[in-house]
């Protein structure tokens, strides 16, 4: 009977010296490198109020959702682009990369494995970015509240602007939430990005508590 040896299991994650193709030698510590520890900068709103208001209006009317279905709730997001719900008429659009998206819809339960991807994607999103928590699982864990692998409160890991209750909420509820988000953006209260930057240590500590290592399997790269 072999004793489970975590050092042996992920031996390639030990600290080591790597030689680059150019011949440079540098030290790699994957355990540390994969933690996204760099503190984000606070981007204050534009001081000229009418300009900021105008920009917020455009941000609200042009919503680019990140096409990343993180849980079962994501199935409610897809009908929005169909002819029946047609979210395009409200300025909603889908982007495939986090860098071009502004709204992150967390579709339902977030397991620890998914949480790692959520944090990575969220940190890659640019500009004023907004998070919609879809389904009960993002609020208090929903039906997975006592699971060994499901996050209970999403707002301990990333700032959330609007929650949608229900298991599952219907697509109309999601459309309504987008409306609420628009109101929130237009009023200038949706400053989740700055909130994340200001409370970065707290968020990072919470994330590190569940995400032991930021290494990704080979297929992720």
């Amino acid at each position: 009977m072999a004793k489970m040896n975590y050092k042996k299991r992920w031996a390639d994650l030990e600290k080591r010296i790597v030689v680059s193709p150019e011949g440079e030698e540098f030290e790699v510590d994957p355990m540390q490198d994969y933690f996204c520890d760099a503190k984000p900068r606070v981007h204050p709103p534009n001081k000229i109020a009418p300009l900021e208001k105008f920009a917020n209006w455009c941000r609200a009317e042009s919503i680019y959702i990140l096409g990343f279905g993180t849980g079962c709730g994501a199935i409610e997001m897809r009908p929005l682009s169909s002819a029946m719900y047609d979210a395009y008429r409200f300025g909603v659009n889908w982007r495939a990369t986090p860098r071009q998206a502004t709204v992150f819809v967390i579709g339902g339960y977030a397991s620890v494995k998914t949480m790692k991807r959520i944090v990575r994607s969220y940190e890659q999103m640019q500009g004023p970015k907004f998070v919609l928590g879809l389904c009960s699982c993002t609020i208090n864990g929903g039906m997975y509240w006592d699971s060994y692998n499901t996050v209970n409160r999403l707002d301990h890991y990333i700032p959330v602007d609007v929650y949608i209750t229900g298991c599952m909420p219907r697509p109309e509820a999601l459309l309504d939430a987008i409306d609420q988000l628009k109101k929130r953006i237009k009023s200038g209260r949706a400053e989740g990005q700055n909130k994340y930057a200001e409370n970065f240590e707290w968020y990072k500590a919470n994330q590190k508590k569940i995400i032991k290592n930021w290494d990704m399997p080979d297929y992720s790269w």
């Binding site: 208090n140 864990g141 509240w145 006592d146 060994y148 692998n149 209970n152 409160r153 301990h156």
Partner: peptide, 21 residues
């Protein structure tokens, strides 16, 4: 976690900040 001597509820309460109410 699927071994029966693992207490899921206790683990979840200790780790995932259960919401009140």
């Amino acid at each position: 976690p699927y071994r029966r001597d693992f207490d899921t509820k206790k683990y979840s309460e200790e780790t995932y900040y259960p919401r009140e109410g």
